[in-house]
Design a protein around this nucleic acid. Structure first.
Lengths: 200, 200
DNA sequence: CATAATATATGCCCACTGAGCAACTTTGCT
DNA sequence: AGCAAAGTTGCTCAGTGGGCATATATTATG
């Protein structure tokens, strides 16, 4: 009764996670192009056919972590108190999530780097990004009581996610060649502030 | 001697265009999922194998028009006089291009609508988008004499393209259900102005 | 102009992929 | 326990991208 998630759900989540991890490991090891769906399925102890039931392709399996992260951001935003101005709520959602997760771990960094390099990953990631953007725009529209067709929610959503994306890129770029790389949150705050300022 | 482009180049361009048009026609007619690469190749009088020499997949063939449009925007920006402030130069590049091309034609509209609907198209388009964004950021960095790692060029480039993307979406949405749809340039100016303002 | 050098088109091939279908297994509910 | 629902798997097939070799077209050179 009380079990919010039954065994079924839990197992599915586990499998999904296992497939994701297998994909990560194999990709880091051999490069995405040299990893077949079959190999990932094997490593996760499921059949190739079942892989398809979980992910539409190896890219999706790889990006599963990233995707969860971004969606949780939308969720966090939805839970911000209604009194906060929208932009502040967005900022605070990001800050809250950062506090929870801390500076990016290995997997986070590896994923981001992989995505920057491999075109097919980049494509899938951006497609996800857009879906999240739409959802975030919807959330903003609801919070501000605007019609879903209005431009403001779309602009805010896009600008916010854009800033985070740029911060992540700056962070990755800084990781490799700088002597003292800056923290992700520091970069994010900077870019977010830059975005919120008028252009000229 | 004077031929800036030889016969070879010209033929290639023609073929590319023909393939693109075939892809558009067949997709509008049957839907992307019911069109094979082979069918497109046939319609364009080339072999399936040759198709691969021109495009990485049917999506790319379909988005060829869009891609040219966006790249020409970067080019237009590069040609703006150096005295203009960067953001102004971006605005003027967009305005110039709009004057050249006028209100979107059928193909433009159809493409945009297709992309909004079909996930795989959306993915490819966004991947292109990112490549353009990088290039635009580079152009901005050059113009302003900033290091390529700076955040400002990336923010400007992303914000600008983001605004155009949102405007295009608003335009498409408006086409279908509004009584008096607004012009693309009008929407673009509005969104660009909104982006350039401080958020709260 | 002839011929060499180079770029392009094509055919053949193969490994990989996504997905429909049907059997089979596991889980959830009563 | 027993039945319904959901999940897994193997089989199969059309579609795809790309390597390789060959034929053909274009361009450069003597």
């Amino acid at each position: 009764m009380d079990t919010t998630v039954g065994l079924r759900e839990r197992k599915k989540a586990e499998t999904r996670q296992a497939v994701h991890e297998a994909a990560m490991r194999l990709t880091v090891e051999h490069g995405l192009d040299n990893v077949t769906v079959e190999a990932i399925a094997d490593a996760a102890n499921i059949s190739r056919r079942t892989f398809s039931n979980y992910f539409a392709g190896k890219e999706d399996a790889l990006l599963y972590g990233e995707q969860r992260r971004v969606w949780s951001l939308v969720e966090a935003f939805r839970e911000r108190p209604a009194e906060e101005p929208t932009w502040q709520a967005l900022l605070n959602a990001a800050r809250g999530l950062y506090e929870e997760m801390g500076e990016p771990n290995r997997e986070w960094a590896i994923q981001t780097r992989l995505v920057k390099q491999h075109p097919s990953l980049l494509a899938r990631q951006m497609a996800n990004h857009i879906r999240v953007e739409r959802e975030l725009a919807r959330a903003i529209a609801e919070r501000e009581g605007l019609e879903p067709g209005a431009s403001r929610p779309r602009v805010l959503a896009a600008a916010f996610l854009m800033a985070l994306r740029i911060a992540a890129n700056l962070w990755i770029d800084g990781q490799s060649d700088e002597s003292r790389p800056r923290s992700l949150i520091e970069l994010a705050e900077e870019v977010l502030a830059e975005v919120a300022q008028p252009f000229q």
